[in-house]
Amino acid sequence: MSNPFQDPGFFRNPYPTFAALRSASPVRKVPGGAGQSSYLVTGYAEARAAFTDPGLSKDTARFFAGKETGRNLHPAVSQSMLATDPPQHTRLRSLVAKAFTPGAVALLRPYIARVTDELLDAWVPGERTDAIEALAVPLPVAVICQLLGVPDADRAAVRTWSNELFAAGQPERIDSASHAVAGYLADLITAKRRTPDDSLLSDLIRARDGGDRLSEDELVSLAVLLLVAGHETTTNLIGNGLLALLQAPESLHRLRDDPGLVETAVDELLRLDSPVSMATFRFATETIRLGETEIPAGSPVLIAPGAANRDPARFPEPDQLDLDREPGGHLAFGHGIHRCLGAPLARAEAGIALRALATRFPRLRLAVPPEELEWRHTRLMRGLVALPVLL
């Protein structure tokens, strides 16, 4: 079969492609770049099983050992916590997990609300506004930079590098951005070592310098992962969620009128248009079986939460936004030991932002037809380039 990701309409709307693939087989071999095929998982039951299958590894260094990739990714990006297995993954995750617990996030909620209000104060009624650049980007960037102690003056550069890291089909841009962001954080670590503060980055430096089993390379890599992953998913969640609500105004009005609906709404928006369309790389360390498909040892495996979350075998009428749907069960944040560490923070930011929009601008509407919206060209993330709205 042809490469499904090369269809020019895939980035605009991947769901018909996902549905066709899932209907043919919820796990199937698809062509990839450089002649390398992968097994794509689009069924819900199969995706959930794949996330916890001990025969699937995320240790990309092991997979690519001795292979010529032609790439120049900085090790802080190519060998991050996302690309490790236990016990290394367990050790690294434990060092940052406390910063993203529900309790820790609850302490951040006033700051999130304040930044949201400040951003929305700049929106002018009657004028066209890009909700991505005016809210969906700066809010999560401000929050994760606040957590890590990144100076205000550097936040625009952080966003640019992060955006470049997900430029599908442009390896040189991705590689260059990886070196830029890793170099910046290495310098920031040096500065915070001289002048510590109460940021999460300073906490990690103390763990490293206190001999808490964290190498200097691991420190830089954790910082890169937290900075990039700490806002990318949330930016897409806010943008995709707002678009879905604008296309279903009655749901937007319900969100305005019923504060208790926020958590359920965020869950349903995560399911409907998952901010992570394709999970990061895995490979089979042994022959495994997912559903009816046998996957040989050494094969790359791609799990598609965006497809799994619209599997009609799990979610009735999966293409419909339904705020009365039983919450939970979706795979937007993954599943198992690699489930997104920042899920509580992303939920809080999206809930606060979307409710504020619904409350402050009840007549908010799209400024262009939906078919004219431009989507980011990245297989991993699902997000808008811009979302023009009218107040």
Rank of each mutant, 00 (worst) to 15 (best):
R194P: 02
P312Y: 12
R289E: 15
L387P: 01
V115K: 06
I238E: 03
L107P: 00
V158P: 01
E372W: 04
L269R: 05
G43N: 02
W375Q: 11
P87H: 09
G351Q: 01
R314W: 02
A308Y: 04
S199M: 10
T287F: 10
T287K: 06
V389N: 02
L73D: 07
I132T: 05
D154H: 06
L323Q: 13
L345M: 13
L82V: 07
Q247Y: 02
E46L: 08
L40E: 08
G126K: 03
D324W: 01
A180T: 07
R208L: 00
A350R: 00
R271W: 08
R282G: 01
M1A: 15
A350P: 07
P300Q: 09
T69Q: 14
A97P: 02
A168G: 04
V228E: 01
L204Q: 05
G32Q: 07
G32W: 06
D273A: 12
L269G: 03
R155I: 08
T359E: 14
A156K: 12
A265P: 01
F10E: 10
F281A: 08
L270Y: 06
R159Y: 10
E371V: 06
A50V: 14
P369I: 05
A142I: 01
E286L: 12
D152V: 13
G9H: 15
A134W: 09
A168E: 13
S162I: 02
A83T: 09
R365W: 00
V228R: 05
L200V: 15
A50Q: 00
I144T: 01
R114P: 07
R28V: 12
A104R: 10
D322N: 15
R62Q: 15
L92R: 02
A122F: 00
T234G: 03
A34Q: 14
N72T: 14
P26V: 14
P31K: 12
M381K: 07
D117M: 08
R382P: 02
R256E: 07
Y111K: 13
I337D: 12
K67F: 11
L188V: 11
L245S: 06
I132N: 01
P296Q: 13
T235C: 01
E127L: 04
L272E: 04
P31G: 11
G291C: 09
